[in-house]
Amino acid sequence: MGLSMATAGMWVERWERQQQLYALDREERFAVIADATEHLCVDRDRPLLLDLGCGPGSLSARLARRLPDAEIVAVDMDPVLLELGRTQHADAARYVDAVIGEEGWTDALQLDRNVDVAVTTTALHYLPANVLIRTYTALAALLRPGGALVNGDHFPPDGSPCSELTAHVGLRRAERTGAHGPADEDWGAWWQAAAGDPELADLFQERAKRYSSCVDGNQHLSVGRHTQLLRGAGFAHVTTVWQVGDSCVLVAQKD
Rank of each mutant, 00 (worst) to 15 (best):
Y126T: 13
R66V: 05
Y136N: 10
I72E: 01
A108M: 04
V96W: 00
A108Y: 00
A129T: 14
M77C: 05
T135C: 11
L111K: 02
V131E: 12
L124F: 13
A92P: 00
T106K: 06
E83F: 00
V115F: 05
P128T: 08
Y95F: 15
A148W: 05
D76R: 05
P79F: 10
D112V: 13
L67D: 06
W105E: 12
W105F: 13
D107N: 01
A123V: 11
P128Y: 13
G53D: 04
P161I: 06
L143G: 05
Y136V: 11
L127Y: 09
V115P: 05
I133C: 12
Y136I: 07
Y95P: 03
A140W: 09
L63Y: 08
P145I: 12
A70D: 03
E102Q: 15
V117K: 04
A123F: 10
H154D: 08
D158G: 02
A90E: 14
L82D: 13
D78P: 08
L149N: 06
D107P: 02
L142Y: 09
A61E: 07
R134I: 04
L52G: 09
P156T: 13
D51Q: 09
D116W: 00
N114Y: 07
L63M: 04
T122R: 13
V117P: 04
C162I: 10
V73Q: 01
C162K: 14
G57I: 05
L67M: 08
A108W: 02
G104M: 02
S58G: 13
G53E: 06
I133E: 15
Y126H: 15
N114F: 06
P145W: 13
G55S: 01
S60I: 10
R86G: 03
L124E: 11
R62D: 02
A108D: 08
A129S: 13
L50F: 07
R66K: 12
L124S: 09
Q110D: 02
V99T: 14
E164M: 11
Q88D: 15
I100D: 02
T87W: 00
A123R: 12
A141L: 14
F155I: 07
T87L: 04
